[in-house]
Design a protein around this nucleic acid. Structure first.
Lengths: 212, 212
DNA sequence: CTCCTCGTCGAACGAGCGTTCAACCACGGT
DNA sequence: ACCGTGGTTGAACGCTCGTTCGACGAGGAG
């Protein structure tokens, strides 16, 4: 009996797929996908729409990405990496006070959702369009992000800096509200980025019952 | 020259369209659409999916609704009516204290988003799938809902019951977090409906800086 | 009994979807 | 000068989409 390695073939040649951003066309396709999907959603955006927005043809999209689905996965994954990285960096730079730490991650989270607004929108509204393998990856990273908020709020509650009696729920409350910034923020609107950050830091502190 | 009335024909017979819920099949179609679209989104759900989930054929869907788009509009519209109605009723029944009023509308908002979870999900994530006329209607009702929160928080801030210095932002913060309940709440999960309500009332009060 | 009306439904329409592929062409090695 | 190679492309694949329509059959009027 001969055992044949069939599984491996499911994954296409990795050289181009694992580093798609080196190729300028791959990056253009990713950017175009962000643009188009943020407006019409995953199922509402056709491969032709995305390709033509990137100035190429559908066929070249398939030279750089496994499929439309693979493009979405890459897009969400990269977006979440940016978010996680920014939040981790903010925590590293913050002092030991729970209030400082909460303000730091709220600011990081909110800024990413303004700077990478469309990626964030897609990452949060197209979770259901992700098929199993990609979804697991994205959900894991979202959970990791949530856990950072949980930890900071829990620490503050334990130390008595925060008076909230429901730290995990308050943490989720805050995360959702800060993520929601991507849904309403408009560059050039009545609030500057800094305005949005300042207010969200303040409201988040209130939400955990921070004595100030 | 003869002028022919062509426009009129675009709109199908109105008797069935203006009161679709009286017809059991129309109601079944609406329920099926909620079920299917909550999972796959508007563009990800086909008319055939919806019709077969309702136990009928695509053709009968077009006897009860103008189009797939019309079905979505009706769905969002009805969902928002339920939400608005619940929130208005809660305000009417609440006392004069800003804290009581905020708790009342938070509870109403959260309960609707748990009871009509799928409708709420669709209404909040498929806004972009709505075409111009329907979208205007839905946006107007969403704004009305937001304005109720704005008013209550502003009143509390003016009277000094709430110490927040950014009442409108806090109101939006709260609305978004409470709307987000529809994205994570699971019936039979670790938290009962009442748990969720109690916690959201408490956190919302904290978020506006309510002295208690 | 006959006819006419009207709701119902299977079948089909053209369009657009995600995806594939064979032909193509520029180009580097021999 | 020649050939082989590998990225690029227009065209096409099979399929599913939203929507339409003509045949059908039950039921009331004459």
């Amino acid at each position: 009996m001969v055992r044949v390695e069939v599984r491996r073939r499911v994954v296409p040649p990795p050289t181009v797929l694992t580093r798609p951003d080196d190729e300028p066309t791959a990056a253009a396709l990713l950017a175009a996908a962000v643009e188009v999907m943020a407006v019409n959603g995953y199922h509402g955006s056709s491969v032709r729409d995305i390709a033509s927005a990137a100035g190429t043809s559908p066929a070249v999209l398939y030279h750089h990405y496994e499929s439309k689905q693979g493009l979405l996965v890459r897009l969400c994954d990269r977006g979440l990496d940016v978010l996680l990285r920014a939040t981790e960096d903010a925590l590293d730079a913050a002092g030991p006070d729970a209030a400082d730490r909460l303000e730091a991650i709220v600011e990081a989270h909110v800024r990413v959702h303004m700077d990478s607004q469309r990626e964030s929108l897609i990452g949060n509204s197209e979770l259901r369009a992700l098929e199993a393998p990609g979804r697991a990856l994205v959900v894991a990273k979202r959970d990791a992000q949530q856990r950072m908020f949980d930890r900071v709020v829990r620490d503050g509650a334990r130390s008595g800096e925060f008076t909230t009696t429901h730290p995990d729920d308050a943490a989720r409350f805050i995360t959702i509200a800060c993520t929601g910034v991507a849904t309403w923020y408009r560059r050039g609107g009545p609030l500057t980025d800094d305005d949005v950050v300042v207010r969200h830091r303040a409201i988040a502190l209130d939400a955990v019952g921070c004595r100030r």
